[in-house]
Structure formats: structure tokens, C-alpha cells
């Protein structure tokens, strides 16, 4: 395998991992599979288009504003929609996320049409290749995705492992009733999970749009990242990281050595294989699955 291929795998895995983090966060805390995640990611990218248009001379401000909007978006989705479904069947919540996805797709076309937008062009940024090793080049935006994925995962790990609210998020996922009885407001924890989930999704959408633009089909990328989250086990962030690497490696190997036509199918093939052997994913916990 050439170094360039390894670089390609790392970049694709970083994209999938950054998107998957949001699936895992929401699932782990509330056992809800958010099937509007890809759409929320796309909205995150469109928000960057909007803030870039407003503050084209101040990219840092535009990026910060878009990132904060990504966080707020999740809080709003929770407060307006998902909050009212706590205590209802998980299936009802999942169906609502599907409806939300349809709604967001419609809304995005109403607002931004089906045109391709390039926030990088609005900032006047080029996306030049960087030589990271002899014979290995990746774009600046791809490099940023890899760096950001590492930062996001490290930050999430530290947050969940060492802060009180992180511990509370883990606790609420394990036993929501006991969490409430220990004084934890479940709505606050769930809202936090949704906020962090759409925040990371927005970051992914923003960087993808800086790399290659955003248009109405970007939501599909969320669907392609889904196998990565599932392969690793939906309730494990580490699993999502490993799952993203496995799926990305399989996809790139299929493009390179078998047939590029397979690239769409391979993530789901890997998923089927893993689920056949370990239905709870590589790093998921078994009892979590039983509860669904």
C-alpha cells in the first residue's frame, strides 16, 4: 500500500469519524438513533455559507458563529422536538428524526436551492495541496479535518471521562431513572448530548464544504458515515473511531483494487459482516443492544 493510500484512508476515516461522533453521543445518552444527523450536518455547512456571506472579510468570526450555531441547533432540536418524546417508545423518537430529516431537506432547498456553494471561495481561500511526505499530498481542508477530528475526539474523551457533566452523560445513558434520582436533570443531559452531536456534525459539514462545497445531497454523506458508527458499536466513541478506520480502509481498498463502483456498497458490506458476528458492534456493549 502506498503512503498516499494510507493518507487517503486517514482523511476519509476522519470524515466518517467526525460525523459518527454525533450518532454515538445521542445514542449513548438517550438510545435514540438520530436519522436526521446527515441533514443537520448539511444545515451546519449551509449556516457557514450564510455566515461567510455576512462576514466574508472575517473568516474566524464566520467560522465561530457557524460552530456556535451548530451547538444551538441541537439544543433547539431537543427543546422543540425530542424533549416531548422522552418516555415514549424509542421507535417514535426515531421516526420523528426521520420526519425532521425530510423537513430539513425541504427547508434547505427552499432557502439555499439546489445550487452548489463554496464558503472557501467566499473567503477567497484556495485549498492548495500540502506535501506531508514525499509523494503524499492532501489538501489543506483535508488536513484540517484530520486535525479537527483528533481534537474533537480527544476533547470528547476528556469531557466524558473527567468532567462531572461528562460522567453524568455516561450515567444517564446507563440508567436514566437513577440519574434523575441522583439529581441529574435528564432534559439537560439530553439537550447537551444533542447540542454536542450537532456541534460536531456542523464542524464536519463546515470542513467538508470548505473542501468541496455544499449542496442539497450532502446529507447523504451522513448516511455513509452511519456504518462506521454501527461497526464500532453505537455506544462507543472509541468504537466509532475504529469503525471509521475499518470502513474507510475497506472503501478505499475497493476503489483501488477491485472496482470503484463498489465504493458505495462496501461500508454496508462491512457493516453486515460485523453485525453478523457481533450484533452489538466491535466495541459496543451487549446490554445496550438488548434494550433497543
Amino acid at each position: 500500500m502506498s503512503p498516499q493510500l494510507i493518507a487517503n484512508i486517514v482523511v476519509l476515516a476522519a470524515i466518517y469519524a467526525l460525523v459518527s461522533a454525533g450518532y454515538v453521543l445521542v445514542y449513548r445518552v438517550s438510545h435514540v438513533l438520530n436519522l436526521a444527523h446527515g441533514e443537520l450536518m448539511m444545515i451546519g455547512a449551509y449556516i457557514l455559507v450564510a455566515t461567510a456571506g455576512l462576514f466574508s472579510g472575517n473568516p474566524i468570526l464566520a467560522l465561530l458563529l457557524a460552530a456556535v450555531s451548530g451547538l444551538v441547533m441541537g439544543l433547539v432540536v431537543y427543546a422543540v422536538l425530542m424533549r416531548w418524546l422522552t418516555g415514549e417508545a424509542v421507535l417514535a423518537a426515531v421516526l420523528v428524526t426521520i420526519a425532521l430529516g425530510i423537513l430539513l431537506r425541504g427547508l434547505s432547498i427552499l432557502i439555499w436551492t439546489t445550487q452548489q456553494f463554496y464558503p472557501a471561495a467566499i473567503f477567497g481561500w484556495r485549498n492548495p495541496p500540502v506535501h506531508i511526505l514525499p509523494g503524499v499530498q492532501i489538501s489543506v481542508a483535508s488536513l484540517a479535518i484530520v486535525a479537527l477530528t483528533i481534537i474533537v475526539y480527544a476533547a470528547l474523551f476528556l469531557f466524558l471521562q473527567f468532567t462531572a457533566w461528562g460522567v453524568r452523560m455516561r450515567a444517564a445513558g446507563q440508567n436514566p431513572l437513577l440519574a434523575e434520582q441522583r439529581g441529574i436533570r435528564l432534559h439537560a443531559v439530553y439537550a447537551l448530548a444533542w447540542g454536542l452531536s450537532t456541534f460536531t456534525a456542523s464542524l464536519a459539514g463546515m470542513l467538508l464544504s470548505l473542501d468541496s462545497g455544499v449542496e442539497s445531497t450532502m446529507a447523504t454523506i451522513g448516511l455513509k458515515a452511519f456504518p462506521a458508527a454501527l461497526v464500532g458499536g453505537l455506544d462507543s466513541l472509541f468504537g466509532a473511531l475504529v469503525g471509521a478506520l475499518i470502513v474507510a480502509a475497506a472503501e478505499i481498498a475497493a476503489i483501488q483494487f477491485v472496482n470503484p463502483l463498489l465504493s458505495d456498497v462496501v461500508p454496508f458490506l462491512v457493516l453486515l459482516l460485523v453485525l453478523a458476528v457481533r450484533p452489538w458492534g466491535l466495541f459496543g456493549s451487549r446490554e445496550q443492544l438488548d434494550r433497543v
Partner: peptide, 11 residues
């Protein structure tokens, strides 16, 4: 959660 985390968790 660890024993210590079970104490940390209380809000």
C-alpha cells in the same frame, strides 16, 4: 462507572 465516579455523578 467507578466507585469514585458514582459519587461524582450526583448533581
Amino acid at each position: 462507572l467507578t466507585v469514585a465516579e458514582n459519587l461524582t455523578v450526583a448533581a
